[in-house]
Computed example of a mutant assay.
Amino acid sequence: MKSLSQEQVKQSIETKLPSFSIIFETENLSSIELDNIYRSLASIAAQDISPEQANEFLIIDGGYAPQEVIDEISSKYPWITLQKAPGLGYYEAKMLGATLTTGEIIVYCDSDCVYVSNWLRNILTPFMQSGEINVVAGETSTPVRNAYELAIAMHYFFPRFSYQEEPYISDYYFLNAVAFRRDFLLQYPIPTNLPLYRGNCDIHCYSLHCLQENKIWKHPKAQATHEPPTLSFCIWRYLLMGRDRVLKEHIKYLLTKNSELVDYAQLSTDLNWTLAQKIKGMLSTIKRIKPFDNQKIHAVLQEDKSRSGLLPLAVPIVIGLELIFAIGSIVTYLKSDLLLKVYYQSEENFTYLNQS
């Protein structure tokens, strides 16, 4: 029997691929260097399944990218469709994209990530294997090029790449590298009306996987490299992460009590703790301070043992990040909406000054 060539196998797979749409946002440009959008789009353009095969490649622009950048990338990549949505939040933009696109599969990617050349293929192919597969995520990690990025790699919420060979079932996804069957996503949408900064997809995962027992598949060869937050944004990011941790735990508790809850906005009205609960929560936060994750540190150093030379510089940064994280949680017990209000006000002032 004559065996098929690698190119023939590739073409055979492509003819069987489900129709798909790709949704790309610009909000994350507020926390990274603007040049990242060029690197991100270049990595998508270089995919071995061309983005031109998508029903749509839709950029939801909330006004975070300068017009000259939008014009430049639209000219360079004619397969881009632009949807202006000024001031729209991250999760609202993602769900708006799902309603505007037509592919059977909705693929999400972000402007602060660079994707390996077979990322799109590995995200899409599991959907061909079974109609019961509704969610396929890739793995997302961060680069290490200096002591600050080593600290981020040891402490930030992104894990290291697993380097496994086959897809496996997970209990979470990251919205910068995941695909959904469109009908499934519209039936079980990512909540957009939670009192969180970022963490809606964490609640979505909890609801899908833990409460409704839907499977989240993860393909280890669909790798995305996420830029670390800029040093200037990092303090805010960690304060808000501390805030989100408190509120996510509370929301999960409420969802567990009422798993049939449809209107997530109802959860934001039940955040008034008693004095005793506040004290208990703050003490619990202090007890949970643990800056070093030995498993993650081991994984980071196993990737490149020469990084151990950066440890003396990275360790104080890790301790500082953990303390900022804890402060964010403690402030939230005292006043749950304070940090987010101050952050958004500072963002408005920054935008106003830049436009003046």
Rank of each mutant, 00 (worst) to 15 (best):
A151I: 11
R307Q: 13
C234K: 08
Y173T: 06
I251M: 09
Y352A: 15
R182Y: 07
V342C: 05
E14N: 04
E166H: 05
S40N: 01
L339G: 01
S5I: 13
P312W: 01
L58K: 09
Y238Q: 12
Y197N: 14
L150D: 01
Q47D: 01
I317L: 14
S162G: 05
V69H: 05
D71K: 06
S336F: 10
E27W: 11
T192I: 15
E68S: 13
K290H: 04
Y77E: 08
S12E: 10
L208M: 13
M128F: 00
I327M: 12
R237P: 03
G89R: 15
A46D: 07
K296N: 00
Y206T: 09
L88A: 13
A46H: 04
R160A: 06
D304N: 15
Q129T: 10
R245N: 03
L175W: 08
I324R: 01
S117Q: 11
Y156G: 07
I152M: 03
N214L: 07
Y333C: 07
S5T: 15
A314I: 08
L124C: 06
P220V: 14
S356H: 11
E92F: 13
V342Q: 10
T140V: 15
L239C: 08
F158K: 06
F180N: 14
I106A: 12
E139A: 07
P312Q: 01
R237Q: 15
L353I: 12
A147D: 09
F180K: 14
T125Y: 00
F20K: 05
R182A: 10
L88I: 15
P191W: 03
P86W: 06
P191D: 06
L58N: 08
E52A: 07
Y264A: 09
F158H: 11
A137S: 09
W273F: 14
D61S: 14
S232Y: 04
Q355H: 12
A265V: 06
C109K: 08
I37Y: 04
I286C: 08
I327W: 05
A153G: 11
S43C: 02
A265K: 13
I80N: 05
L311F: 11
R237W: 11
D304E: 12
D244Y: 03
E139T: 08
V107L: 04
N176C: 15
G97S: 04
Q266D: 08
A299I: 04
C205L: 02
N258R: 03
A65G: 03
